[in-house]
Amino acid sequence: MSTRTTSAPTPKIVMQGVTKSFGDKQVLRGIDIEVAPEESLAIIGTSGCGKSVTLKCLLGLLRADGGSIQVDGTEMIGAGRQQLEQMRRRFGMTFQFGALFDSLPIWENVTFRLRQQQVMTRQQARDIAAETITQLGLAAHVIDQYPAELSGGMQKRVALARAIADKPEMLLFDEPTSGLDPITGGVIDSLILDSVRRLGATALTISHDMASVRRIADKVAMVHGGVIIWCGPASRMDDTGIPEVHQFVHGLADGPLTLAAQAAARGD
């Protein structure tokens, strides 16, 4: 993966010192992230370290306790409802567990936002849905099925289709390839890359799959203990000199990230 210069004047997404607690358990202790336009950032970190919470705070689905979140230079913490809604409209997001609407068939799931925003016939919507899911390697006839009738990996891809169907300028993916076979995972990686490279989207992807991270990411950020302990170009991932990053990237059993240390870092 070539590293592009990231000296763009306004980054698309800036999070500074974002904190979040649930009860007396502090999950985020000051997250700092910066994503430039048309950049693909991957967030890595051990299970339960707060990656999903970070994404939800970014969109205001969870209210951050403190810090600053800027999208295109506009402060989002303390922003009004309308501003928040406008900001969310520019994002497409997938959730870790799909979060498909199980009362709606696939085609209505995929075109959900499109149909909120513009009038289209049933047939047009179905065509768009079919086109989007075939890109992800699903058969077109799936659009008439319901989420519960699909396998986990298929649901994952439908969720992805829903997020990208109206080609938003920023994409947030929470573990898009977990639970998928390597071939489908590869298809999804190239779809993410394609969105960034060809459509000019800005992407922020949570992933545990280091091979996938190497394929899709320009920049990698590792969360540990509620802060970003390392952020840099993907190509530098292997020689950071930080033992936690080294252990995680290489999937080593020995190192500072013992299960007990992880629990302590989460404040359990």
Partner: peptide, 17 residues
Amino acid sequence: TMRVTDQIDALDTLSTR
């Protein structure tokens, strides 16, 4: 169920209150 499976959050991200 929609709450615990993030479907309500998903609505929010899909321009629907």
